[in-house]
Simulated scan of single mutants.
Amino acid sequence: MVTNANRAQWAKNAVKSFAVETRITGETAEIQMTDMLCVMMHLAKKDSLDFVSLLDEATSTFDQDVQEELEADNEAKVLSSVELYILNKTGYHFVVHFPLDLAGMPGAVRYDNHELLLKAHAKASGIDLSELGESIEFCMASDGYTETALNTCVYPVDLKDGQSIEQYINDWIV
């Protein structure tokens, strides 16, 4: 995925190349960019293009890029703030940091908080609450899902053909 940081780096590379070509590498970035815009105006005039219209279109595209990145950042913040406390059908407990369709998890139970989840697991398994291990945590990454064991090791989730994340979590067993 192309980010605005990528776009800024491309522009920086173009300005550096321009500065080398025009022998103004000792000038500030502002002067280099101003000179580059000026020669682009000369090019637009030579090619009978309306530079102001091009600049307006570029500004519109820039505004759209910034808005899309803000929306993506806000969506990521919302997803990362989700915490679902799940006891799956095989009796293991999980903290999930993204929305799940619990209808796709028959036999699984959602709890309101971590403490209630651990108490339910201890009761269902007959294990003393103090002896329960850490909850496995699931997170959503840009390239799929991850699970964290013992709060230290992060593993990519390997979904089989057609398997949903809900099925994976509900069927999870050591």
Rank of each mutant, 00 (worst) to 15 (best):
N4E: 05
N6A: 09
N6S: 13
W10R: 10
K12Y: 03
A14E: 13
K16I: 07
F18Q: 02
V20K: 05
V20T: 04
T22F: 08
T22W: 13
R23V: 03
G26W: 07
E27K: 08
T28M: 10
I31F: 13
Q32R: 09
M33R: 09
D35K: 15
L37M: 11
C38P: 02
M41S: 10
H42Q: 01
H42T: 01
S48Y: 07
L49A: 09
D50H: 04
F51A: 09
F51D: 04
F51W: 06
S53I: 09
L54V: 05
L55E: 07
D56V: 08
A58C: 04
T59H: 10
Q64A: 14
D65E: 11
E68C: 03
E68N: 12
L70Y: 13
E71L: 06
A72R: 13
A72P: 05
N74Y: 13
N74S: 07
N74E: 10
A76D: 11
V78C: 08
L79C: 14
S81M: 05
L84R: 03
L84Y: 01
I86N: 11
F94E: 01
P99R: 01
M105C: 02
P106M: 13
P106N: 14
G107Y: 03
D112F: 07
H114P: 13
H114V: 15
E115G: 10
A120I: 03
A122K: 00
K123L: 11
A124P: 00
G126E: 06
I127F: 00
D128Q: 04
L129I: 08
S130A: 12
E131Y: 03
G133F: 05
S135I: 04
S135D: 04
S135T: 11
S135A: 06
I136S: 00
E137I: 07
C139D: 13
C139T: 15
A141C: 12
D143F: 08
G144M: 11
E147V: 09
E147W: 09
E147S: 10
T148F: 06
A149K: 15
A149S: 12
L150Q: 08
L150N: 09
Y155C: 05
Y155S: 11
P156T: 11
P156K: 14
K160Y: 08
K160S: 13
D161L: 14
Q163L: 15
Q167N: 00
W172R: 01
I173V: 15
I173N: 15
V174F: 02
V174A: 02
